[in-house]
Amino acid sequence: MFKRKKGLFSILLLAFMAVFMLAACGDKDKTTGGKDKDVLQTIKDNDKIVFGVKNDSNLFGLKNPSTGDIEGFDIDIAKEIAKSILGDASKVEFKEVTSKTRIPMLQNGDIDAIIATMTISVERKKEVDFSDVYFQAGQSLLVKKGSKIKSIDDIDNSTKVIAVKGSTSAQNIREKAPKAQVLEFENYAEAFTALKAGKGDTLTTDDAILYGMADQDNNYELVGGQFTDEPYGIAAKKGNTKLVEAINKALTEMKDSGRYDEIHKKWIKKD
């Protein structure tokens, strides 16, 4: 009887060691992949560039559950960048991020760059490096058609404003309309669902994203025009000048060749 138990004991011990060795190896991969090596070099070595993108922003990055593909303006720009850096538009991988998780995922080495409707701001520049502006958005308001709210001035202390955690618009709205009650959600899918469910009177974020929502459901419309400037940039981990330069070069090429305009026309109907 004891012999059998010993067998069991050694199996358990082996399993235990295996698990720990696996964990240790996993850690090692992470430190060598993430820290000192230049990200551009890693991209070239892996022959693949990993972008963090939105999965819930119609027109910019929206996941199609039937095909598993993410589609939108950001996605097409990312593919063009891959074409410029690696010579092949298909050498990209997309990982889904939210406004809240994108910077940590970049820092963790989970993604090489962020192209996810991300505004270039002074605070964020302390954490990441940005490319040139690739899209000019501005904050606006989305309301149900027939709403009393026509502009930012109509927001008073009885107005519930929906925003997304970690977005610049959540911060801006508190400055522009300090009286508003702001409800912040994890991502745009939940924020828009909450607006449609009547949890708030208006949803505020960049007009580019709002156009995508109004495009999805024509009971909703944009009001109040742009009341901030939200220049979008592609973010890389701090100190990766070479990668940022390569991205900027790709952006210039795109604009010169007319490819940028094609992509812009394909997704952004208004303007």
Binding site: N55, D56, N58, L62, K63, N64, P65, K95, E96, V97, T98, T101, M105, E186, N187, Y188, A189, E190, F192, T193, K196, D215, Q216, D217
Partner: peptide
């Protein structure tokens, strides 16, 4: 909440589609 593509996440991707409200 940390962008893990698990069941809840994939569920929300489905109802985030245009006209996805009736799928919720």
């Amino acid at each position: 909440v940390i962008s893990l593509s698990e069941l809840m996440h994939n569920g929300s991707v489905i109802y985030a589609q245009p006209g996805g409200d009736k799928f919720i």
